[in-house]
């Protein structure tokens, strides 16, 4: 396979400002087909903005984003078509509250992709069974738990047969005991060969699922390493500090000790 055929997502020199604030400062990122990339970074570092730029929800000032070779331009005519290649799951539950679960999933395949109702329904059934929610197909979103809603949101995105899935802190708003059920679905998806770009704060999960870790800090991509290398031996101090914040040690950090004494 030629190189460009393997590339699913190609971001080059991406810059974005909100007023005077630089949110993304020259981000370069390439994701190959079938690759699972986890993006880490502290809150406000630009992770969500980057994901939103990728599917055109946010415009950017400089640089380019290509999905499967085609350029993403916010507000362009091609955008609705290109977005069908990108499945996105948000942090806040974004199911349509006035439609039942099955409708939530089949609405876009039928109305946007013009697929036959039976065909969309059959795929929805298969996917819902896979995440263990087929018996909830007639329920409304408000009748589901947070974890169930997010699993449905993932299924809804998958039912469009996307070529890449974006996950924007999908477990951040969940009760702890529901995090696992959602991560399991994502892990299974990754093992099935789906191309994924995941933003998460679940470090154990990141380590288990990722082929590669990218670390974003103040709008710059500081690290881009194989997962194991990143966790064992990150190359920048910023990344080391970041990882440190997730480690709980029996002893207090020196700084804390000073403060408390």
């Amino acid at each position: 396979m030629a190189d460009e055929d393997r590339i699913m997502l190609e971001i080059a020199g991406l810059k974005k400002k909100f007023g005077e604030d630089v949110i993304l400062d020259g981000v370069d990122l390439t994701i190959n087909k079938g690759e699972v990339v986890v993006m880490l970074g502290s809150s406000g570092c630009g992770k969500s903005t980057l994901l939103r730029c990728i599917n055109g929800l946010e415009s950017f000032d400089k640089g380019s984003i290509r999905i499967d070779g085609e350029e993403i331009v916010s507000g362009s005519k091609a955008l609705p078509r290109l977005r069908q290649k990108i499945g996105m799951v948000f942090q806040s539950y974004d199911l349509f509250p006035h439609r039942n679960i099955l409708d939530n999933i089949t609405l876009a395949p039928v109305k946007v992709q013009k697929r036959a109702k039976e065909d969309a329904r059959a795929q929805a059934e298969q996917l819902l069974r896979r995440v263990g929610l087929w018996e909830k197909r007639k329920a409304y979103p408000r009748e589901l738990s947070g974890g169930q809603k997010q699993r449905v949101a993932i299924v809804r995105a998958l039912c469009m047969n996307p070529e890449i899935m974006l996950f924007d802190e999908v477990t951040a708003a969940l009760d702890p005991e529901m995090v696992r059920e959602v991560l399991d679905v994502m892990l299974e998806l990754a093992q099935g060969g789906m191309t994924m770009l995941i933003v998460t704060h679940e470090m154990g999960f990141a380590r288990a699922v990722a082929d590669r870790i990218v670390f974003l800090d103040e709008g710059k991509l500081l690290e881009n390493l194989p997962a194991e290398t990143f966790f064992n031996n990150p190359s920048t101090q910023r990344a080391k500090d970041f990882l440190q914040t997730f480690e709980f040690k029996k002893t207090l950090t020196d700084e804390r000790k000073d403060q408390l004494s």
Binding site: G56, L57, P80, R83, S92, A108, V112, A153, M160
Partner: peptide, 12 residues
């Protein structure tokens, strides 16, 4: 978010 999630599913 309703508008955005609809947009990300390709709805015009």
């Amino acid at each position: 978010i309703q508008e955005e999630s609809a947009a990300s599913l390709g709805f015009n």
